[in-house]
């Protein structure tokens, strides 16, 4: 089992590429890998209450650890206690932790 850190900085309403990136995350998890998807910048927008998840629900269902950057959430006025089930707020420390751990890291 490999460990992956995927970083998504774009939202799925900007480009369809993001849905492909979500599919990559899901596929890696379904294949038995330990996958973290770190949402940063506009990547956190699907976590806003009432927003369409556009494929992110499948990512959550596949067992990917989906994290939203606390700073990006605050910047965009997204309350951390309103995040959809399966998305957790996290500090950027997590990215540095996982880089230091030696995970395969891809900025999508």
């Amino acid at each position: 089992m490999e460990k992956y850190l995927l970083i998504e900085s774009r939202d799925p309403y900007e480009t369809r590429e993001v849905e492909n990136n979500y599919a990559l995350a899901s596929s890696l998890a379904i294949a038995g890998n330990d996958v973290t998807l770190f949402l940063v910048q506009n990547g956190v927008l699907p976590a806003r209450k009432g927003a369409k998840l556009n494929g992110l629900q499948e990512v959550i269902n596949s067992g990917v650890h989906v994290l939203g950057d606390e700073f990006s959430l605050r910047e965009r006025g997204i309350a951390m206690d309103t995040l959809p089930k399966g998305i957790r707020a996290a500090p950027i420390d997590v990215v540095v932790d996982q880089l230091a751990e030696g995970r395969k890291a891809i900025w999508l």
């Binding site: 900085s9 506009n42 950027i92 540095v96 900025w107």
Partner: peptide
């Protein structure tokens, strides 16, 4: 904004 995010990572 990617530049700011990378600088945040570097700072951390």
């Amino acid at each position: 904004a990617r530049t700011v995010t990378v600088f945040r990572l570097l700072d951390n």
